[in-house]
Nucleic acid binder design. Structure first.
Lengths: 209, 209
DNA sequence: GAAAGCATTGAATCAATATTCATTCTTTGT
DNA sequence: ACAAAGAATGAATATTGATTCAATGCTTTC
């Protein structure tokens, strides 16, 4: 026996894997999943196409992993936002605002994660993460109900409605075919976010606050 | 000159086209767009694959057409529901309920139209029709604002929120991987619909009605 | 019933990349 | 320095249905 995997090698491989992940995300951020070519990713990462397949089973698996990592970051941000605020309602508002604002800041990324047509394995991840968002909201809503600041409701369902309402109302603005704000509507984004948040909070609270 | 298209022929062609459309919709109703094979459609319609291409430019075009027809039916139903009811709010409730109820009645069809990952040309149609739904709601909301029974709001955006909230909360139940209601939850569907409608109406009105 | 023009057929072709794998290069332990 | 064990390479291959088109069959007109 003359070769055994050493720490140095393990690290080098990890770095390659990391580079592949980063370059894939770079490609996706630029044009979504569909247009991200393995050859391009390999070139960017400075490896051969074959090497990618030592690190990931298949293109779909690679994409699923990228999706998972990227979305987890977003979920974490929302979870974090959900801890900030005096009242439960404020915390929810904060989280919704965070979600929408971040999406509008990186439209192509958000589109890829929220609305781009993707292959089954990635779509599966998407469903998982939609549930993850919904679960975060669900918990907060249940807290709100317990505190008495939200009317009794099926928290699971209404949390899903929140996710749907935000996502849908962002799809138009995010859509890569019409990403540019028409002139004279520059700080529309703020109004957009506020209207969505307002709708959502009303949906939960049933008040005009 | 020995042949000119005659009425009889025109009709025969129209029938073939119609049959192709119906069989395509049958396939889609069964497994969505992705799994609808041209060969299968041709076989069902009793024509050769090549024939399909005299009636439609391409698979995508065929699908886009099928999507248009199917969705238009749904839009019409919603539009119709929107005319029934004493008050604007009741009419909106009615329309939302119609949308959700019909989707739950044909889960695979609804999934194909609302949530299945589809090719660009079909996705384009989907955007068009989401706007169509939103426009219907938008008009009603504006009426409501004018009448004073809805608070002032960006009708375009809140209508989009409605579409998003319903669609999203239906996606889970519709998803072809988990179409069966778990035992003991048989008439969940009604509660589901009512909760969604309630959320939406609250979102619009800001009251607990 | 014959010729001309269209429609239909479906096996063969195409297209577009993801994926493979024989070969080459690197690392490791003695 | 050498051999053993991996790792990396990237040109060649595989895949998968959609799409084409030469051959065949129907309709129509005279």
């Amino acid at each position: 026996m003359a070769y055994r995997e050493t720490e140095k090698m393990r690290q080098r491989k990890a770095e390659a894997r990391q580079r592949i992940i980063e370059c894939t995300w770079a490609c996706v951020s630029e044009g979504g999943f569909r247009s991200a070519r393995i050859t391009r990713i390999a070139a960017l990462a400075g490896v051969a196409t074959g090497t990618i397949y030592r690190h990931f089973e298949s293109r779909e698996d690679l994409f699923a992993e990228i999706f998972r990592l990227a979305t987890q970051r977003e979920v974490d941000k929302v979870a974090e936002a959900l801890t900030v605020g005096e009242s439960t309602v404020q915390r929810l508002e904060n989280a919704l605002r965070q979600f929408a604002t971040r999406a509008l800041k990186g439209p192509m990324k958000a589109w890829a994660l929220i609305a781009e047509p993707v292959d089954p394995k990635v779509e599966e991840e998407r469903l998982v993460y939609r549930k993850a968002y919904a679960s975060l909201f669900e918990q907060a809503i249940q807290d709100g109900i317990a505190e008495g600041c939200l009317p009794d409701q099926d928290a699971r369902l209404t949390s899903t409605c929140l996710v749907g309402a935000i996502s849908e109302s962002l799809v138009g603005p995010l859509s890569p075919t019409q990403t540019k704000t028409p002139p004279g509507h520059e700080n529309n984004d703020n109004d957009l976010v506020e209207t969505i948040v307002c709708f959502c909070i009303r949906g939960l609270t049933g008040t005009r606050s």
